[in-house]
Design a protein around this nucleic acid. Structure first.
Lengths: 120, 120
DNA sequence: GGCACTGATGCGCAGATGCGCATGTGACCG
DNA sequence: CGGTCACATGCGCATCTGCGCATCAGTGCC
């Protein structure tokens, strides 16, 4: 029962939510305020704040005051890179499934910069 | 609300569990039977079976009959690679924290890492 | 067929999660 | 100092998870 699994499970649990993934995706472009995130995602501000609190608690994001605003940004690029890798793999899987259904293929869609990491 | 986030959240939710991460880690060495996994992880067989059912439902693993045994194996290497990348990043973070706590206040004492608090 | 073995499933309960909503808290302005 | 903006927090509820436990189902052997 290596503690690394507990830690990773904690982080994964934090990321395992569609809205939070969207938040991470948005934060990949740069720091954002709570209001901006709430606006972009079309979510109530308290909801976004709660999601951010969870992610901050698990060390995925960190916050910084700027006047009366709070600017959130991603902490560890590697984690987000891994997240992006997984998303890429899943997108390929989706594309493959769509390809099986219909003969037209629109795969290979590179959506995000995700820390400019690219493939290993 | 791109469906990719829903899918990825589903997969992440599947992975966001210490025991399941252990299972994935074990499966990374090659296919395993349920009994073997239960034995290695020291978990009840029904529990392991439930975890495997979840992971199979989300497409993380797949199963194959072999006599009266069931052999489970990982489906997508990329996803597991991403998982491993994240684990590596977190391990570095753990190591860094341990290093900080050792050099800052604690003199060689048997230290129980309190938390990953840290205030900026 | 009967039996042992390997794995899957159903059930119930305790604990955790997600959300809306109202409210609390800190920061700038006049 | 009161008002307002930007965000955080507490509460209650519906829902979901994880687990143990007992049991069901498929397979091979005699």
């Amino acid at each position: 029962m290596e503690p690394i699994y507990e830690l990773q499970a904690e982080v994964l649990k934090t990321l395992a939510h569609p809205r939070r993934l969207e938040i991470v995706h948005e934060l990949a472009f740069g720091p954002r305020t709570v209001g901006r995130l709430a606006d972009v995602l079309g979510l109530p501000q308290p909801n976004v704040s709660q999601h951010l609190a969870l992610m901050r608690a698990s060390g995925v994001v960190e916050a910084e005051r700027d006047g009366r605003e709070m600017r959130y940004r991603l902490v560890d690029p590697d984690i987000i890179t891994a997240c992006g890798l997984m998303r890429g793999a899943l997108q390929r899987r989706l594309a493959r499934l769509a390809d099986l259904s219909r003969s037209s293929g629109d795969e290979g869609r590179a959506t995000i910069p995700v820390a400019a990491g690219g493939h290993s």
